[in-house]
Write a protein that binds this DNA or RNA. Structure first.
Lengths: 126, 126, 126, 126
DNA sequence: GTGGTCTAGACCACC
DNA sequence: GTGGTCTAGACCACA
């Protein structure tokens, strides 16, 4: 099945972001092996070249490193993963705040609204 | 200019959501006139019928009402607009809290992270 | 403005029925003068010939009679008007009963439902 | 065969009413499958889109529900069907009582005239 | 010029 | 095959 790509940004960058999110979220634990380019491309419904480019980008940032014959592996550099998690959460939070501001919520209201939502949420996890 | 539509949801529903957001955010004040179906369709880069369908949906919910020959007007029903703002903020918060959870943040950390981000943000509004 | 004509029956017959209804309801009192063919045709949005044919039909039944130069007049024959009112009410009632039967109402329920509706109706006339 | 549509009301709304009547009358029992959009459109002599719109309207009211690939099914919610039957009979009665009043019948006469008609009618059903 | 309706024809996902 | 969406283009009533 093809994922959903936005027409405004290059697809490979969108893939980079998605993969970053999955790595940060622990879908691929540190040191584990990523699926092959071919498999990832198939799953995402994109051309293998596009996926290749996305993975090259991840490699450039040091998040994954290629072992020529054995495939690509997630870095075991804990600080880097922490840093990734941090920057991604920043990105999500900024989007959240911007959208709530656009709705007319004040900066004071926003954290309280978030806290209230979480308390109200039944599926909450501590 | 054509907007960005996601392939997974019907375009007319995405338009409904975008317009709801703009109305909730005050882009179209209560009682003001919306651009004509044709103009909105042109701006969004969709067929007038598609835009018409989206507006019909907004009308069904009572957010806007059509005056045969004069155009469509935003409701002046303040409670309804308040309610809209509330439900849209709920939707945004739920989406983004889920994404932060997926990143490994705990329910306790999230509101604090949001508050910290806002304090750090230069473009803040009171 | 053009009236609403059904495609299944000749228009002139539909006009006959409408005029019968108006005469029976007292819109044109006994002995009064009908508007000219031209005016009636204009109002109904049909060709004068069609209206002419409808009026000829009314004349055939004796409901109206033409005075060559002065126009057409509603009959003053009271029994005939009574008879008309009767047959038209029969026609309406038969339609009502058929449609309620089609909805699953029994012959016992129908008159009671009608009576109940009238009692519930605020705009009732004694 | 093409049905008869009135020029004054949108066709799709007339179709909604006709279908409501047929459902209320039991032509399509609860839980049964409606003919496909295309078949209904063909039978009614309208464009499939028009029929689609009518069915979407029925779906909005919860009278039928669509199962993506299998077709549309009449609701099995008995109270809703009862409610439908009631509101449709109200509508029919109000329309026809108005017409009888316009004919000069008093509110007292009407139910009796209906009862008399039924007793006189040979095709009556208990 | 506005909203609204209708038709015709195409394409998609699902099974 | 099913329902659903989208486009293109036409027509209407209203004022």
């Amino acid at each position: 099945m093809a994922w959903n790509f936005d027409g405004s940004t290059p697809i490979y960058l969108q893939i980079v972001n998605i993969l970053k999110g999955e790595i940060a979220g622990g879908a691929y634990p540190p040191g584990s092996r990523l699926p092959s380019v071919r498999d990832l491309a198939l799953e995402a419904g994109v051309n293998p070249n596009t996926m290749q480019r996305a993975l090259a980008e991840l490699e450039r940032t040091g998040l994954v490193n290629a072992q020529r014959t054995a495939g690509r592996f997630i870095t075991e550099d804990a600080p880097q993963l922490t840093q990734l998690r941090y920057s991604m959460s920043e990105q999500i939070i900024s989007e959240l705040v911007e959208r709530l501001r656009a709705l007319g919520l004040s900066d004071e209201q926003i954290p309280d609204a978030v806290r209230a939502w979480i308390e109200r949420d039944h599926s909450g996890q501590s």
